[in-house]
Design a protein around this nucleic acid. Structure first.
Lengths: 113, 113
DNA sequence: TACAATGCATTGGTTTCTTATGTATCTTTG
DNA sequence: CAAAGATACATAAGAAACCAATGCATTGTA
């Protein structure tokens, strides 16, 4: 089962920031594969979604980049900036809190009519 | 604290369907107020988001409507159709499963480098 | 040598939400 | 009783975020 794409909306930035905070530096393709593996294929980040997100995070100053070459093939590594390190904690907290709220909402019992 | 709007994305339909499955029939304004109260103001569904969603659910055949008048003021009640009753269970399950996966992703420990 | 995998990226389109606006009625308060 | 706020519907223009498709190039594998 693959989650319908609408669910991913709004969580992608947080996922990326969290991965970067746990792994120091990662490149785009690595991020897609890591998420795919960790979620047993349930979350598949497409490149068309990932790269714009990474570029946006860079513009916001939350990540920095460095380019390496493996043979002739380019690799662009992304790392958290100091601002990014602060932000990731906030984002993860907010998402965790949101999920608590949603869990509550989904478990509600009928009103007494 | 109000959750950043991007988090709501993708969950609105599920929230609405779930509320309808617990309350038999509800009208738009009631839905916004119920969500606001239940989440202690943390989730505020705007009318500009809700009404298009309700209309879409109706077009998809997941909800049916009936109009009532309280004095001269209109109320449009929404109820789950049989299809809707089936769908809401799937949607809630999927969202619950997605949140499990996200919880796991957010708790991951650093890789051994 | 062809195909799959790795790795970057962009473009066009759709969905979904936000902000703003519009109309109208009912209730509360100074 | 007038004004303000709450109730109740709805749409329209625009932005944000994602998807599908595509493109280019290199490396590994059958």
């Amino acid at each position: 089962m693959i989650y319908s794409s609408e669910l991913i909306k709004g969580t992608l930035k947080t996922i990326v920031l969290k991965l970067l905070s746990d792994n120091k530096k990662m490149y785009g393709y690595e991020i897609t594969q890591t998420v795919k593996e960790m979620t047993l294929d349930k979350i598949q980040i497409t490149e068309g979604a990932l790269y714009p997100t990474l570029h946006a995070l860079e513009e916001e100053g939350l990540v920095t980049t460095e380019t390496e070459y493996i043979g002739k093939r380019m690799r662009k590594y992304y790392s958290l900036s100091p601002t990014g390190k602060t932000r990731v904690k906030e984002k993860v907290k907010e998402l965790a809190s949101f999920m608590d709220t949603m869990t509550f909402l989904l478990d509600i019992k009928p009103k007494i009519a």
